[in-house]
């Protein structure tokens, strides 16, 4: 670094730059480096231990001809879309209801947020029991006299993923509700007054005025929900173990099972590369629209 008259651009905010060095290194070596390493080794026939023996695209060939991978992708799509929609809708509606200056708001907020304090493993186990036909919901309703009542989502191939979705929503919507509530509280009281003066019905105020104003909150929420969807793993492991059969498998579980159980790192890397690709396809155009092109205000 040659000495100059003016303080160098590089030395401005030196403290902040020094402080961010560890994070930059972590990002470079752990995230980017690890990602590149994984992609590279997905083209090899690595078994238990990684080795550089290239086999071209054959891991990907096998991946896309495996029934379990296809089922995993379908499940993630169903779970992803529904969990995104329902989390946002339920979360927002709950927040809007809580925002009506009701009594015992703190109590309700605590009740709704409580499931979030449980890990996915506990959530999965609890709902495995609740949905078990022999002593859960089905058993109780049959006990009330409806002897033909059937509700066993975890033991039915067709609907098992919805059983998982119920548990996921139960655990996650409380947090979404809190974020939304914070957003609603951030809206200026004057806006409401103005809307009331103009005689706009309350639901219209929410949809056409309040929600557009809450855009930053919605984006934060979206990122939180989406990352939860992609990494869906522990809930499945605890609640269904991927069963019955392979009908509730998800991509993250496929990656883990092939890397560690099947001792086939190459196959696991190929699957995780596909997951990265899918996320990138969604994220990059969106990030470009959101952050690119515009000057930061």
């Amino acid at each position: 670094m040659p000495e100059t008259q003016r303080p160098s651009q590089l030395l401005r905010n030196l403290n902040a730059k020094v402080a961010s060095v560890p994070m930059i290194l972590t990002a470079m070596f752990v995230f980017v480096g690890g990602t590149l390493w994984t992609v590279l080794y997905s083209f090899t026939d690595s078994k238990l231990l990684p080795r550089l023996h290239f086999v071209g695209l054959s891991q990907y060939d096998r991946l896309w001809s495996t029934a379990r991978w296809i089922v995993s992708i379908e499940n993630l799509a169903i779970y992803g879309v529904l969990s995104l929609v329902f989390s946002l809708v339920i979360g927002f509606v709950l927040a809007a209801l809580l925002d009506q200056k009701i009594r015992f708001e703190n109590v309700f907020r605590t009740i709704f947020l409580y499931p979030f304090a449980l890990s996915f493993i506990v959530t999965g186990l609890v709902w495995q029991w609740i949905l078990n036909p022999d002593f859960g919901v089905q058993h109780i309703i049959r006990g009330l006299g409806f002897s033909k009542f059937v509700f066993d989502p975890l033991y039915n191939q067709e609907i098992v993923i919805y059983g998982v979705l119920i548990a996921g929503l139960w655990q996650g919507t409380g947090l979404i509700m809190c974020l939304m509530l914070a957003g609603l509280r951030g809206i200026d009281e004057e806006i409401w007054k103005a809307a009331r003066v103009d005689g706009i019905p309350m639901w219209k105020t929410y949809i056409f005025i309040i929600i557009p104003m809450m855009r930053p909150v919605f984006i934060t929420t979206l990122v939180i929900i989406a990352s939860g969807i992609v990494k869906l793993y522990d809930l499945i492991v605890a609640q269904t173990g991927g069963g019955p059969g392979i009908s509730s498998e998800v991509p993250a579980k496929y990656v883990y099972d092939f890397m560690f159980r099947a001792q086939n790192l190459g196959q696991g890397f190929a699957a995780s590369t596909m997951m990265l690709l899918a996320v990138a396809i969604v994220i990059i155009p969106w990030a470009y629209l959101e952050f690119g092109g515009k000057k930061r205000g």
Binding site: K47, Q157, G245, I246, F258, A262, N264
Partner: peptide, 19 residues
């Protein structure tokens, strides 16, 4: 057989017995 093949057979059997 290798653990890899075992896993593939496991997946198939688990699917066959449940579906």
């Amino acid at each position: 057989i290798s653990p890899d093949t075992t896993t593939q057979i496991n997946d198939l059997m688990s699917q066959f017995f449940n579906d």
